[in-house]
Design a protein around this nucleic acid. Sequence first.
DNA 1: GTCTATATTTTGATAGAC
DNA 2: GTCTATCAAAATATAGAC
Lengths: 190, 190
Amino acid sequence: MGHPHLSKEQVLDLLTIAFRRHGKDGATIAVLETATGLRRNSLYHLFPGGKGEMVAAVLDHAAALMYERALKPLQESGSPKYRLTAMCRALDDFYCSGREPCLVGVLSLGVPEDLVQQQITRAVTGWIEMLASVIEEAGIPSRRARERAEEAVIAIQGALVVSKALGSEHAFKRLMKRLPDDLLQPCIAG
Amino acid sequence: MGHPHLSKEQVLDLLTIAFRRHGKDGATIAVLETATGLRRNSLYHLFPGGKGEMVAAVLDHAAALMYERALKPLQESGSPKYRLTAMCRALDDFYCSGREPCLVGVLSLGVPEDLVQQQITRAVTGWIEMLASVIEEAGIPSRRARERAEEAVIAIQGALVVSKALGSEHAFKRLMKRLPDDLLQPCIAG
DNA sequence: GTCTATATTTTGATAGAC
DNA sequence: GTCTATCAAAATATAGAC
């Protein structure tokens, strides 16, 4: 008989891990069964839209988690340096120092449907904007702040790829250490 | 009657495009048929090991192409600045200004078999080393040169991810423009 | 070396009991 | 709300003609 062992939130956590590890097509229903401990029909019960709905839900869930853990601290009190450091610490945890890839990076591969592409674009755009806002607060001109924010997200995504490729956490951890100072470095010319 | 329309090289070119676009699992045999214009058995005739062998062969092929187009120019004559600029121009072409992803980034997803993981690690390591060598030639201390080379590869990979996510070539093109100067900037402290 | 055709396994998705 | 069992479609791979 029915035993609701897991909340939908918990299921989403487990699905997220699976999609990050295997990618959209590599994460077969069988893989998702193993990852969650649920049978396929339980998954279809939670997500009647099938795998497509699971992907969309997991993206939403991951975006919310990312906001809660890494982005909201950017908007709280404290110096820009302090807030950026808090974000980097959260990212180091979120991505397990580069051992786990970014869901956005993983799911933007292939030929994503329009909805997924929109979710991805929105997530990345929002991230860049929040970062730019903090950098600007520290006295960096608006346009330059926005460039640096974009470069930061690029570096983070790249570090995840390279860390995975080299099988080493070194690249990612070094970036997390340097990033706050790099982003706030005074401009030579405005 | 047999008509060998395509050389194995040409087939590998077409397979490479397909794997970059669809990823390892998204590139089904049907997709590869369409991409190459060959039927499945012709593909299995060329690659008796099936899809696994195709992936490995495509990685080798892409690494060779990458070396020929972007990395060999790094080792030829000319100033470091000139050679780095040549690489960036080649990369802009190779990745279609960020519209096409990196095969290494795509295939390092999922749980790659040992062989594939080794190919990926070797490709990225080699790239970083060649870059570091050029930067060092320009007078940057060895250790710092190696760091910058790694950061360059990180930025390139990250720019590919972000360009795809934002649906814009802007990030990648800007990086290709800045990279040569950034890499050769004099050190403040050795 | 390429084709048509088919075998086999896996995948995404449902049916129906409890 | 979870299970066992199953389906239809798609995936990987093979057989055999030419």
